[in-house]
Simulated scan of single mutants.
Amino acid sequence: MKRVTMADVAKMAKVSKSTVSQYLNKRYEYMAPETRKRIEEAIRVLGYQPNIVARSLKQKRTSTIGVIVANILHTFSTQIIRSIEDTCREHDIHVIVCNADDDPAKEANYIKMLRAKQVDGLIVFPTGGNIDLYQAMIQERYPIVFVDRIVEQVNVDSVLLNNERASYLAVEHFVKKGHQRIGMITTSLIRNITPRVERIKGFITALKAHNLPVNHEYIKGLEVAKIKDGLSEMFRLKEPPTALLVGNDLVLMEVLNYVKENSLIIPQDLAIIGIDEVPFANIFDPPLTTISQPTFEMGKKAAQLLLEKIEDQERSIEVKIHRFEPKLIIRSSC
């Protein structure tokens, strides 16, 4: 079956190929309304499909970006992706999402694959394990933006939460509720992932600011599978914590399972504040106090930064760390 071409559309609509091209690129200001209607009708009748590959070669762009998330199971990640996709759709940019599973090898493979597909730029939640790859992209002036994490050796625009402030807000609220034995549990600190390290730093700073002792037996950074074991150790102490700051949504699920399995009552036996606003926070019994991140604003900012870089790769744009402020949402768990 013969492929329908732009010339076929132009012939049926009684216009030039350049006018059809203007229509396909949504430059409607260059044509009368009746011309636009004729082209639209010709496309519908003929079943014309634009040749995206040919257009990409001509424009030297694919109108596609890649997003590599560290762990797509995080509510934070899915909300950021949604915001990036919404922003890109407004600019007719397609988004390919890849999940690195916090594995530097997977991340490296995805970076290479997406670049082989000639995506116009990348938004990466970096594992921190591919310094040479990151540096090579910077040297090439390839458009890239980091989200949620900073890689100290790499000079890239980064969009993330004011993590220290998030922990401070939580400790401040615990203290207002009369708690002095306050603990914190988060995911593994082995690779110095930015939000985990910064949230613990903010937690310790807040304890000191409120003249509370820093009990390192109350502070744990563990793989998700070991969270319950860590909680068991914490609550076998002679004086266990009466309040617990939970570092992210995946850890929160483990904490809530532990609470249920051990018949603890929230907040009487243990007050809880979780960093990350989860969808079930207000319907859990009791409703959960959380520290929310402005995920949609953060995703929009990341997309805007990347699109600016794609639009003008030769222009020197000052690299910045873009911090967003957390918000305490008070419910019944503390």
Rank of each mutant, 00 (worst) to 15 (best):
R3E: 11
V4G: 04
A7M: 10
K17H: 06
S18C: 07
S18N: 11
T19L: 14
Y23S: 00
N25A: 01
E29S: 13
T35Q: 06
K37C: 04
E40D: 14
I52M: 13
S56T: 00
K58T: 05
T62A: 11
S63K: 14
A70V: 00
A70T: 04
S77I: 00
T78R: 01
Q79F: 05
R82N: 12
I84Q: 12
E85S: 10
D86C: 01
E90C: 11
H91P: 01
C98K: 02
K106T: 04
K106H: 08
E107H: 02
E107Y: 02
I111F: 03
K112C: 07
R115A: 00
A116Q: 13
Q118C: 08
G121W: 05
I123N: 04
F125M: 09
P126V: 05
D132S: 14
Q135C: 03
Q135W: 01
A136N: 09
I138S: 10
Y142C: 08
F146E: 03
F146M: 02
V147F: 08
D148I: 05
R149Y: 00
R149P: 01
I150M: 13
E152T: 13
E152Y: 05
V154T: 11
V156T: 12
V156E: 07
V159C: 10
K177F: 05
H179N: 04
I190A: 12
N192T: 05
P195G: 02
T205I: 02
L207W: 10
H210N: 15
H210L: 03
L212R: 01
L212V: 07
P213T: 12
P213I: 10
H216I: 11
E217L: 12
V224R: 13
I227C: 15
K228H: 06
D229Y: 11
D229T: 15
G230T: 01
L237G: 05
T242M: 04
L244G: 11
G247E: 10
L250I: 15
L252P: 06
L252N: 13
M253H: 05
L256I: 15
L256R: 09
N257T: 15
N257L: 15
S263M: 09
P267L: 03
D269L: 01
I272D: 09
I275N: 08
I275Q: 09
N282S: 15
I283E: 03
I283T: 13
D285K: 02
L288N: 05
L288M: 14
T289P: 09
I291A: 04
Q293P: 01
P294F: 03
T295C: 08
E297Q: 15
A302S: 14
A303M: 03
A303Y: 02
L306M: 00
L306S: 00
L307M: 15
D312K: 05
D312Y: 01
R315A: 08
S316A: 12
I317H: 12
I321K: 15
E325S: 14
